[in-house]
Simulated assay, not measured.
Amino acid sequence: MDKKKILIIEDEEKIATMIQQYLLKEQFAVLIAADGVMGLKKARQEKPDLIILDLMLPGLSGLDVCREIRKESQVPIIMLTAKAEEIDKLLGLELGADDYITKPFSLAELAARIRAVLRRSGGQEQPKNTVQTRGDLTIDFSGLQVYKKGQPLNLTPTEFNLLSVLFRHPGRVYSRLQLLDAALGEAYQGYERSIDTHISNLRRKIEDDPANPRYILTVYGVGYKFGEG
């Protein structure tokens, strides 16, 4: 089996090397870029399976790099940030990052996050009927593709997985914690509010009017459900 290729975009050499050495032991192939411009170049040239992206980079910030990558690729992105403010984390998610982790962090936790993101981007759990349609939306579960009125939508792995969970059980109400567990895995418990940002991103992509959603409905005080359409 080919090793999954991880690109680390991090300007602090000590941190980048520490992550690289740990991931090499975990049987990943690892590349490093020390700034945003080089990181963007390597992302385009090397086509990594996942990117670890520092928020604070010289020249081109992590948010700018994330924005540029999302214009052309849905490669999974985990953002590293030394900032504890919720707004910084949520801004990264709004730009299409799949997850964030705050410095200082455990290397074991980072590896767990990487594996969780790669699992859901690989779509391991598939229903027997791999193509299902509800309203104007069609999901090809085996092909990891969502269509609206026959046109393909560009969803991140996290967005695809969240939509898949809700889509399979229309009308069923999921709490934020249940969505984290079902769609993202146990490593994400304690990050319930990040679900709201992913849901907001999803609505912008699948709803005709995100402010008055037809598909992903809010159940106030509880969580979310998929409408009958």
Rank of each mutant, 00 (worst) to 15 (best):
L110Y: 13
I206P: 00
N129K: 08
K25C: 04
A34R: 13
E85N: 10
I6Y: 01
Q27S: 15
T138F: 02
Q21I: 15
C66Q: 05
P127H: 09
I77G: 00
G221M: 13
N201F: 13
R120G: 00
Q151I: 09
M79G: 02
T218P: 10
L163F: 01
K89P: 01
V165S: 01
Y100Q: 14
L23N: 00
H169W: 15
L180W: 03
P127N: 02
Q74T: 14
L80K: 11
V117R: 04
G39C: 04
D140Y: 07
P104W: 06
L95M: 11
D88E: 11
P157V: 04
V75T: 10
N154I: 03
E68Q: 12
Y147I: 10
I9G: 06
Y100F: 14
L137S: 05
E125Y: 15
L80W: 07
T81R: 03
K47Q: 15
V30P: 10
T130G: 11
N161C: 05
D35Y: 12
R119D: 08
R44H: 07
R120F: 00
R176T: 06
G221D: 09
D196H: 12
I69G: 06
G36Y: 02
R176D: 05
T158Q: 02
A112M: 15
L23H: 02
A111L: 05
T81N: 03
L95G: 02
E10D: 11
G92M: 01
I77M: 03
Q21Y: 08
H169F: 07
A112N: 10
